[in-house]
């Protein structure tokens, strides 16, 4: 069994490497079966909206945290989270204002991939997300994998930076937190 799991893991990693994030169009029956792709930062812009709903399973978070090649914002949301749209919008605007080109990743926690992908992709709240993922597995285990202290409050924001531990915030991160997260990028400019 461990050997099988290991082989499956290798296959997943290989698929991640070869499949671009936008490989399947919205509503494609293949979309929900594809492995999560690593973050691929477009050369010129990160404004391209998500074109499919990817699964967020137990392997996704470590992969996201490990493979982000530039500052990345992950916003965990629910379809009934009334505060989430404003935070997504504000973080998108912040990234643009600071010229961070930070991919914005939205993760929907109360809909599984394949349940209603079309409406998630049509939802204007997620329109600025570079990638759109949905919980695919027991929510408690998935939340625990992200941060054991997180009790499901949304929006839950993770600020990722290459080579650094993720920074978390309930709701909109403070200016100080955003500044600290973006400081290395700012220093490069």
């Amino acid at each position: 069994m461990p050997r099988f799991a290991s082989a499956c893991g290798a296959l997943v990693l290989w698929l991640c490497a070869v499949l671009p994030a936008s490989a399947a169009p919205a509503g494609s029956p293949h979309a929900q079966h594809q492995a999560a792709a690593p973050i691929r930062t477009p050369a010129a812009s990160v404004a391209a909206p998500a074109r499919r709903v990817e699964p967020f399973d137990l392997s996704t978070w470590p992969q996201l945290a490990r493979t982000s090649q530039r500052p990345t914002v992950v916003v965990f949301s629910t379809t009934d989270c009334s505060h989430c749209p404003a935070v997504l919008k504000a973080l998108h605007a912040h990234s643009a204002r600071q010229h961070l080109q930070a991919p914005l990743v939205a993760v929907v926690m109360d809909m599984a991939p394949g349940e209603d992908d079309a409406s998630l992709l049509d939802d204007p709240h997620y329109a600025m997300a570079h990638r759109l993922l949905a919980f695919d597995g027991p929510p408690a285990a998935l939340r625990h994998a992200v941060n054991p202290a997180w009790r499901g409050v949304t929006p839950f924001v993770a600020l990722l930076r290459p080579g650094a531990a993720p920074t978390f915030a309930l709701g909109m991160p403070s200016d100080a937190k955003l500044r600290a997260w973006a400081a290395p990028e700012a220093a490069k400019r």
Binding site: H83, V153, L170
Partner: peptide
């Protein structure tokens, strides 16, 4: 103080 949804 939080501008968020506790769902709880």
């Amino acid at each position: 103080a939080v501008d968020g949804c506790p769902h709880h």
